[in-house]
Nucleic acid binder design. Structure first.
Length: 554
RNA sequence: GCGCCCGUAGCUCAAUUGGAUAGAGCGCAGGCCUCCGGAGCCUGAGGUUUUGGGUUCGAUUCCCAACGGGCGUACCA
């Protein structure tokens, strides 16, 4: 049993013995406090109970503590503090045991089973192949991949999926953009419309087209499909290469077109009609979204006969349900915030439990140049590509850049600032700690020490050592909460803390010889090196979760 | 106009989901290498958490209003 549950259970028993009412008792929350002096874990249950019992919180706390029966080899100290908190301090032997467990588990430390093999799909990026991936897509790509990694670490069976549409109007414009550039390159005078794709990459594709076909070929609009499919192929290859550079591989690329070809789109309309949730008006087909609490009904088939985006989206999500995913995670940018309720309503309408779908919305990345804000647009070629960013700052810093802030923050991106800050990127701080530990382990070996030997860590008692041990113990909870709440940024926040506490621990030996890691005192040296190994494991496992390398030298 | 998201140190961001004295990095001012990595450590300055109300033992967190920014608000995706 985990220590949290153990204390929780004991508290419950104590409350019962104290004869306080356990009727609609709030859940006993237990967690680490912000301050060291408040112990390792604390609970506010006495404060909550006091208002119901109309007694002083401190008195309630004292009565609970009086009836509390905890194993002293785990919890060495219990006290009541402040406005009625009950604080618990771990017994050092318990802490040492936990650190030894880290070493035994190695790269399995931090993993958990609670996902129970749940079949999970994470859909992200899903950019249509109209241009290179930008830093906007980068945020989503890195978030999605890391959420997938977190879920894998907590025993979910994860499918990474990329949804795209290569048949829409935008793709036709893309094809025609290439065709026009090909004409231009062949010396024709052309008018290039404003709403066509302006990027330089279009010319590159046009050059390739000219190599493959005679220049005459571009003059006919009949040949747009050729230019379109060439563009799609070239751009998709580029996208996949960018993703692979970032360490991201999708299991499934799902083409919207197939939803029509297999009749899935049609079937959705039929089913909605059968349930009287779709009807005709003004030549269009409407979905009765008001039935699901929305303000107005929505068109799913235009009077022109073309479906709106909602219909294939619903069909796609129905297909996700049919494929048996227990949990479906959709990661969208803020621009999709208004569309997903329609999709969820669609699933409800078709008889599915839409709570299986978890929609995560991340805020946009805005580009700025000096004080000027630029609206990113693939069509207008106002963007910084993900490749450019990786060229400038490297893959690790790129991933870290997107991961160390929460999804809900607006991200203002200034490339020149990113360049100057790349050397100050906190990723190096964390990686440096890892490299430094590898170095001291090598040093230990050079001194003829068997750095792998087993110890009981009983000689570790300096404040720096205790802090470090206790910090390392928190990793599994950090991973679990990051996975449960879909908040990857908790990992880097925590790793920076680990690095700080580690640096402090190793640095202590510079001021005070008795705190050096490798000394003449062999048993003590072994204990300290074991602590180094445990720290390295936590940093390495955390970095792996983020898809970031863990250098042994820098 | 209406809806959703956001507003925390000069800058970029945290804050264990309602907890105790709001914390880091960068930048700024100082200090620390004969010796395990100075890509490091320590000290300091810097805040009315945009503003004003409310809820309660307790609010950066929840509610209301205002201000500022982002995104939507289509028979575009």
């Amino acid at each position: 049993m985990k220590i949290h549950q153990y204390i929780q259970q004991s508290l419950l028993d104590a409350i019962k013995k104290s004869k306080f009412s356990t009727e609609d008792l709030p859940e006993i929350q237990i967690g680490p406090g912000k301050q060291k002096q408040h112990g390792d874990l604390s609970t506010n249950i006495a404060i909550l109970l006091a208002s119901k019992e109309k007694k002083h919180p401190q008195d309630v706390a004292r009565v609970i503590v009086h009836h509390l029966n905890l194993d002293e080899s785990k919890i060495s100290q219990i006290n009541v503090a402040g406005p009625g908190f009950i604080n618990f301090t771990f017994h050092l032997d318990y802490v040492r045991g936990a650190v030894n467990e880290i070493i035994e588990l190695g790269d399995r430390y931090g993993r958990d089973d609670w996902g129970n093999g749940k079949k999970t799909q994470v859909e992200f990026v899903s950019a249509n192949p109209t241009g290179p991936l930008t830093i906007g897509h980068g945020r989503q790509a890195v978030l999605g991949d890391t959420i997938a990694r977190l879920l894998e670490a907590t025993h979910h069976e994860v499918t990474r999926e990329y949804y795209f549409n290569d048949a829409g109007r935008q793709m036709r414009i893309l094809g025609d953009s290439v065709r026009l550039r090909a004409c231009e390159l062949s010396g024709d005078k052309i008018e290039f419309p404003d709403d066509y794709y302006q990027g330089e990459y279009i010319r590159n594709i046009a050059r390739q087209a000219i190599k493959e076909k005679k220049s005459q070929y571009a003059r006919s609009e009949k040949h747009i499909p050729y230019f379109q499919s060439l563009a799609e192929r070239v751009i998709f290859d580029d996208i996949k290469q960018t993703l692979s550079r970032l360490g991201i591989a999708f299991d499934v690329y799902y083409n919207e077109k197939s939803l029509y070809e297999t009749g899935r789109v049609k079937r959705v309309i039929q089913e909605l009609r059968e349930k009287n949730l779709a009807y005709n008006r003004d030549g269009a087909v409407w979905f009765r979204t008001t039935h699901f609490g929305q303000e107005q009904d929505r068109v799913i088939v235009k009077s022109s006969g073309e479906p709106t985006y909602r219909l294939p989206d619903i069909a796609y999500h129905k297909d996700k349900m049919e494929r048996g995913f227990d949990l479906v995670i959709d990661i969208f940018g803020a621009d999709h915030i208004a569309t997903y309720p329609d999709v969820l309503a669609g699933l409800e309408a078709l008889g599915y439990d839409s709570s299986r779908v978890k929609v995560l919305i991340h805020q946009f990345v805005t580009l700025s140049e000096g004080k000027e804000k630029i609206k990113m647009s693939t069509r207008k070629a106002n963007f910084v590509t993900l490749d450019e960013l990786m060229d400038e700052v490297g893959v690790d810093a790129t991933r870290y850049f997107f991961l160390n802030r929460s999804m809900s923050t607006h991200l203002n991106f200034d490339l020149s600032l990113a360049k100057t800050q790349s050397e100050e990127n906190p990723v190096y701080y964390v990686q440096y700690a890892h490299a430094r530990i590898c170095s001291i382990l090598r040093y230990g070996q050079q001194q003829g020490i068997d750095t792998e030997s087993k110890t009981d860590l009983s000689l570790l008692k300096a404040p720096e050592e205790i802090d470090l041990m206790k910090t390392l113990m928190m990793f599994p909870d950090v991973v679990a909460s990051a996975a449960r709440e879909f908040e990857p940024h908790r990992i880097p926040t925590y790793l920076e803390e680990v690095a700080t506490v580690y640096h402090r621990f190793q640095h202590a030996g510079k001021k005070d010889d008795t705190l050096r890691v490798v000394t003449e005192d062999v048993p003590l040296t072994l204990d300290r090196l074991a602590l180094c190994r445990a720290t390295r494991i936590v940093l390495a496992n955390g970095l792996t979760l983020m898809g970031i390398s863990k250098p042994e030298k820098m």
